[in-house]
Simulated scan of single mutants.
Amino acid sequence: MEKTTTLNLRVNPDVKRSAEEVLSQLGIPMSTAIDIYLKQISMTGGIPFAVTLPKVPASVNTDLMTTDEIHAKLKEGYNDIEKGKVQDATAAFMKFRKTHA
């Protein structure tokens, strides 16, 4: 099928760059990926994947905290750093995902 319409988009440059890297590895041009996405919308009658808010534990969800609670969390973090209570970020994220997945 011949493509006859031009679509101009404004997107976050970092998101675009990241998507291009993935698509390059898959051997799929950006225009083809967008065409696939639009076809899926037409076929399914909506966005072809769940659009939901991430599940964030209340203990770290700043949307649910007051300004004072956020400041208290930050102060606690600074105090931990001063006491040397730190850990590798990769290990911390792995632990977090196991606990909150």
Results as ranks from 00 to 15, higher is better:
30 M>E: 11
30 M>V: 13
30 M>T: 13
30 M>C: 06
31 S>P: 06
31 S>W: 11
32 T>K: 14
32 T>V: 12
32 T>G: 03
32 T>M: 10
33 A>M: 06
33 A>L: 06
34 I>C: 07
34 I>V: 15
35 D>E: 14
35 D>Y: 10
36 I>C: 11
37 Y>H: 06
37 Y>T: 10
38 L>Q: 02
39 K>R: 12
39 K>A: 10
39 K>Q: 12
39 K>I: 05
40 Q>G: 05
40 Q>R: 08
41 I>A: 02
41 I>N: 04
42 S>C: 09
42 S>G: 11
42 S>F: 11
43 M>T: 09
43 M>I: 10
44 T>Q: 09
45 G>P: 05
45 G>S: 07
46 G>Y: 02
46 G>M: 02
47 I>R: 02
47 I>D: 01
47 I>L: 01
48 P>L: 00
48 P>V: 01
48 P>I: 01
49 F>N: 01
49 F>G: 00
49 F>P: 01
50 A>Q: 03
52 T>H: 00
52 T>K: 07
53 L>V: 09
53 L>M: 13
53 L>Q: 13
53 L>K: 14
55 K>V: 11
59 S>C: 10
59 S>V: 12
59 S>G: 07
59 S>R: 14
60 V>K: 05
60 V>H: 07
60 V>P: 08
61 N>G: 05
61 N>T: 01
62 T>S: 04
62 T>G: 02
62 T>E: 07
63 D>G: 12
64 L>A: 15
64 L>W: 13
64 L>K: 15
66 T>H: 04
66 T>K: 06
67 T>A: 15
67 T>Y: 14
68 D>N: 12
68 D>P: 06
70 I>T: 10
70 I>Q: 10
